[in-house]
Design a protein around this nucleic acid. Structure first.
Lengths: 332, 332
DNA sequence: TTGTATGCGTTATCAT
DNA sequence: ATGATAACGCATACAA
């Protein structure tokens, strides 16, 4: 890579050009009180030399970098993409920069990214992580999304339990008699695992019979769902008339599997996902779903990270969810 | 935000703890030759004090930050999300960090992000930008994606012209007799605009009759496409039996509009998009499409940015595209 | 209000 | 090979 021209102007150059002291230049830059006359001279010199502050020198003194690292599995999954986008928005509004750290790409590199923060390179971390043994330096502000794994780490998530309950209630409203919960994923004790608990609670409260089909991570979701569903199809009819899937992704898999078996979502079976993924961010929902308030989650996480709160213990913030029709349930 | 404990250990502390000079510590850190005995002492001191280098101080001397800014409209559109993910991968492989700059969020902030680079905050920029009057500091390495707007700026894109030609050829193979090209977007002279040119060329070469429906930016795509298509439906039949859409997003819009009008993609009309978007990155294609080699684009852009090439003029690299069936065309 | 001088944590250049 | 010390560019406490 080409290097910069060696002669990048510094405060010293500006001071000389303007005929003032470096302190004055610094004050102008930082909006400290300065005589109008001097201010003008400095600004002109800055313009003439095309001067820009070197934020590395700045950060060296300030121990503040205005940069936040975001740890996320990837940006391909539309839910993650949307979350990253909202986080960027929230950070940019507060004049913070976003250092993107995709943890999928170099698997289990989460720890490395967390360590990076200690090098004073970022002011804080917002992480949606799965590493069960993640060690977080207590001196680095950290906000977790979807996972409350340390009493000192604030966590923000959608109200997963209520989301599961709501899904159950909707299936009941839709007249279902036998439901199932489907999911593949981390065994970690994270928030999304409450979706199942909420669903079970909702089913029991409403008298809806249900089964659970829950598999560990690192398994091809489509494969296990196909096996499960196929073993529950008799004479072309599915044993269940309502399905709640852990994510919209799973719901989409299920919809397609059933379609291939001649069973149509919304007509023969009611299917609800979780996340609220929309194609291209604006089109309709991919499936009927429990929508997460992505924007609120991002705003809250950033507020929690940058705000100077004074909680006795780190809070768990559960934000309200919404049911959205997306074609895989009959209109109510 | 909580501040770090004031006593973050520095090289000086490590030196004192290890009973050596700061220079020796620095040498150990940077892998310069050091006696085994000293190396051991320093490493132990580093471990004991839990020392981490301050990269701001490092950057101050080195003028190298190992950080690259990526300018992209957003991470919601799955194509952008996928591109960002690949760029992250390519950068991480080379031990570079990715500073994410979504230009949609604060509209037309592209210039601001470019300016940021001059503050020595990033080593280079990879930008997928639309700002027609973007001023790029010639001393900041910049690689453009999809837009060749300066003879000094390398540009990498998919082979848009060939993609357009391929789409035309496919429609011809599918037996189409009257085709149309649909698109909404920037009037900018960027690479994706060659999709239309290639398509026209392909149609003419193959004797396929065609129309073009091209609209400027900032228009609701679904609205204009609906108007256009509706005016071309007579007695429930579409005037066209083949459609090439500027992006997969447009193709999806069109598919849905036609579906509502009782016209089925793949059966009544052959529809091809552009990008190669896949739901959740792994499922099937959203529509039949000309797939961009996102991974190669990212790798090439990073290589161009970080590599020490010596071109007389900045190259335009057009990477090969592929046709993919995605259900909106009849199987060939 | 403005100028001067010192320190931030690191690396590089000297001597040793 | 190692130790001491001078930059790097900026902010700030202090002096004027």
């Amino acid at each position: 890579m080409k290097r910069r021209k060696s002669s990048v102007p510094t405060v010293k150059d500006v001071a000389r050009e303007a005929g003032v002291a470096v302190g004055t230049v610094s004050r102008v830059i930082n909006g400290k009180p300065v005589t109008e006359e001097y201010e003008r001279k400095v600004r002109e010199a800055i313009r003439r030399l095309d001067y820009h502050v070197n934020s590395y020198a700045q950060g060296l003194k300030a121990t503040r970098t205005y940069t936040v690292a975001v740890l996320i599995p990837n940006t391909i999954n539309p839910f993650f993409g949307s979350l990253v986008n909202c986080l960027h928005q929230a950070l940019a509004d507060r004049h913070y920069r976003l250092l993107l750290c995709c943890t999928d790409s170099n698997l289990r590199q989460e720890q490395e990214y967390v360590d990076m923060a200690r090098m004073n390179k970022v002011d804080g971390i917002i992480g949606l992580t799965y590493n069960p043994s993640l060690q977080i330096d207590p001196s680095t502000p950290f906000v977790s999304i979807d996972r409350a794994f340390d009493p000192n780490i604030p966590c923000v998530a959608s109200d997963n339990f209520a989301g599961g309950q709501l899904a159950a209630r909707k299936l009941i409203e839709l007249g279902c008699h036998k439901a199932a919960f489907l999911r593949v994923g981390s065994d970690l004790d994270n928030e999304p695992n409450k979706r199942r608990a909420g669903f079970e609670h909702g089913c029991m409260a409403g008298g809806l019979e249900y089964d659970c089909c829950v598999y560990s991570d690192n398994i091809d979701p489509k494969g296990v769902f196909r096996d499960f569903l196929m073993s529950h199809i008799h004479d072309g009819r599915l044993d269940y008339d309502g399905l709640f899937c852990g994510t919209d992704y799973f719901a989409c898999c299920v919809v397609q599997i059933l379609k291939e078996a001649g069973i149509q979502a919304g007509r023969d079976v009611q299917i609800i996902g979780y996340d609220g993924v929309r194609l291209f961010g604006s089109e309709g929902y991919l499936c009927s779903t429990i929508e997460q308030p992505v924007r609120d989650i991002a705003e809250t996480a950033v507020d929690l990270l940058l705000g100077s709160h004074n909680y006795h213990a780190a809070p768990l913030v559960c934000l309200p969810i919404t049911f959205r029709e997306g074609g895989t349930t009959r209109p109510l």
